[in-house]
Amino acid sequence: MPFFAWLESTAASEWVRGSPSLFAFPAILSCHTVGMGLAAGINAAIAFRILGVAPSVPVGEMRKFLPAMWFGFWLNFFSGIGLLIGYPTKALTNPDFYLKLTLIAGGVWLVGRISKRLDDFPKSLAVWSLICWGGAITSGRLLAYTYRHLLAGM
């Protein structure tokens, strides 16, 4: 793909991939992991509450933690774009990457539903939220092991 080859030849892409600075790839990766903990973790905690954990917590009040969840989500959106600029071929030629995006889209759709009606949120959808975020973590982790092409032309 000429587009991937061009993107990989840009200074930004080479910086993400090749810079010896801890603020390049290592920092982006660290942000992506902290954001994952916040986004997936807070969604999991809300799902646990819906499923009956900590029953004395007023379930509607769990909504107040959503800003921290969204902080993690956007941290991962932008750090994810950083990683994608570094290795576009690696991610975009791997079906597992599209599985990850689909699971995140499902998870985000469920967050939208949760924001609207948390008080009588169906337990089955809370289970789906756990599946989406847990699946996104797993498929994301497996990206390192399932790619077919690391860079364009390889």
Binding site: M36, G37, A44, A45, I137
Partner: peptide
């Protein structure tokens, strides 16, 4: 190794999600 790593990241999210909350 990939399986153990995936589980490690799921555990991380549970820990940060609940303790961080």
């Amino acid at each position: 190794w990939p399986m153990a790593e995936s589980i490690h990241f799921l555990g991380l999210s549970m820990l940060v999600g609940c303790v961080g909350l």
